[in-house]
Design a binder for these strands. Sequence first.
DNA 1: GTGTCGTCCTTTTTT
DNA 2: AGGACGACAC
Length: 751
Amino acid sequence: MIASLNPQQQAAVTSASKHALVLAGAGSGKTRVLTTRMAWLIQTGQATPFGLLAVTFTNKSAKEMLTRLTSMLPINVRGMWVGTFHGLCNRMLRAHHRDAGLPQTFQIMDSADQLASIKRLIKAAGIDDEKYPPRDVQRFVNGAKEEGERPGDVDAWDAHRRRMVEIYQLYQDQCERESVVDFAELLLRSYELLQRNAPVREHYQRRFQHILVDEFQDTNRLQYRWLTLLAGGGASMFAVGDDDQSIYAFRGARVGNMAEFERDFAQGNVVRLEQNYRSYGHILDSANALIAHNASRLGKNLWTEQGEGEMVRVVEQPSDMLEAQWIVDEIKSSIDEGRMRSEIAVLYRSNAQSRVIEHALFSSGIPYKVYGGLRFFERQEIKHALAYLRLLDNPHDDTSWLRVVNFPTRGIGARTLEQLGDIAREQNVSLFRAVAHVPGKGGANLARFAQLIQHMAHEAQVLTLPELIEHVVHHSGLLEHYKADREGADRLENLQELVNAATVFMHEERYDDAPAGRAHDESGPDSITGEIVGMSPLAAFLSHASLEAGDNQAQAGQDAIQLMTVHAAKGLEFDVVFITGVEEGLFPHENSLLESAGIEEERRLMYVAITRARERLYLTLAQSRMLHGQTRYAMRSRFLDEIPEQHLKWLTSKEAGARREPWSGAFRRGDAYNRPGTGTVAPRAARSTALGVTVGDRHFRVGQRVRHAKFGEGTILNLSGAGQDAQARIQFADAGQKTLALGVAKLDAVA
DNA sequence: GTGTCGTCCTTTTTT
DNA sequence: AGGACGACAC
């Protein structure tokens, strides 16, 4: 088990110090170390499976961990606390719902549900949604919760923020009324439960003597505190992560938690896993050189025994279309060499870039798969079916109620619903409770719907979960509705798939053929441990659906080129990787430059992208690309210049076209287009503006040095638009980046 | 209730 | 450019 590990991996797995921090570089066997550590703790008798707590961020890695563990040790992993932060918190809250102040049947809202809930609240409370856009409110609420702050804790220093806090409070009241919790609430509630309830806290502190955390660089403040609290009874903490791969600051992750952990817990017990088993030398050294430009790092240098391998290939094309075409041609020859299509990935910084690449692949008849689309449990028809199921468990869930009260249509219009909403608000009750007070025909229709729900809830007491879902799909009218729809065939298929998913779920959770709505075993032998949670198959399935949205890809099976954002590629690896759009403004993204430490996160993102490649890596860029309906021109990314020449092989000339240095002297127009090898000559109109724009009698070019009366000297990073509407993004030496309208701004060329 | 038109936005996203 | 969503008309 341990013998096959390298010395650093062994040191990590068998670390005898109380706490340890493992700095695990990309492709260094991180998951292996984590799972072997667990197996080793159990095998050497230092821990029982029962006494381990292992936390991950995604269901996928939790599953992977359990799979590997069972392959090493013949243990029963059922009842082990291995899962995502959210999954484990849910588990804890179900077991102690009373102590946590939650009804047993509380439902979990996903982000879309949460947004709908906030929109409804803003409308009902008559709040100006221009001043308080639902998305901003959602970000504010989640941000506060991730910092561990309730409305009363938020520092509200101005009127706008004070109002935000009020809305936050209103939202909390609404959630309470409807017995629903959002993702962040799962964590915060769990944290507060542990903090306030000594018996519960001490129970878990006693139980979990070893806490293991994966992807530690992605933890937020609340998660860190949650872990700290659980470890407060003397448990050992084993944290694995890579600060260089922290790319989720925008959603609350704090890289700083790693340094904090080292200071507060590990205290020097840091193990570095630096041997890389994935990539060849040139690729790895490129990544090392790039990331060395980041100032705030714990420090780490990857190495490999695999040899140099191929150099990193760099290609610059005149346009995004030609960039895509070039990639497709290169992919073709890779396939001709006998490579699997699924071993070739095309990565991009932003989703908008995929269109052009898809188009080129499609035209060439090459199968491809785009990751990041709608996931199974997010599909409209599935959300509808789930909304019905949720109402069976909790008819006060207004979000679900409103989703299906008139879907399929049953004569309940906006007017009736407004009436219903008014009554519910007046009496401070759920929509379900308010039904009885709506007069007239609308009231009768509502009553019929309420009866339908109650009737189906009754069925839940006798039918198994798959049977119940079939029943609901049929009697709700969903079946008929989609049958009548010309394009409903796929949706019906998905609904059938939902029934199948439920069958699998029942089997996996060992519910056998228990009725869907009947609680499993209300008072288990040890109710405080949560081992027997007392959830009905229906409730458990609904949690599952919220917490695990399903696969994030189109359709599996076929051997296809893999298309995804760099973020989505984290944790994956491919023989051949194309990193596209390696341009200033795109990668690094211009918005990131406005954020503090934004550029370092972009650099880590590039580091993640590079380290996905095993054998061959391409960096591609385009001098011009279509963005928001405008053609934009950009310089090559600064990241290209941070990789030493010795690792790069330019397949197109490095000097022509978009370059980083400001132009000095004459630049021969059209060079980039007329160079042999690119194969295409751009249309005349594009050619005349490709290198710059003309505003009145003045010419501006990308890379040109300019002086502004107020901002001082700067360099034009990119140009967009034409004539009097043309805009320039300019990096000023002192004033930072600005976007200026060239028709308005007073700019002088600097010699 | 359904269809059409106009407006708005556009970095990254798991749970 | 292109998609999503909301307002409005039939």
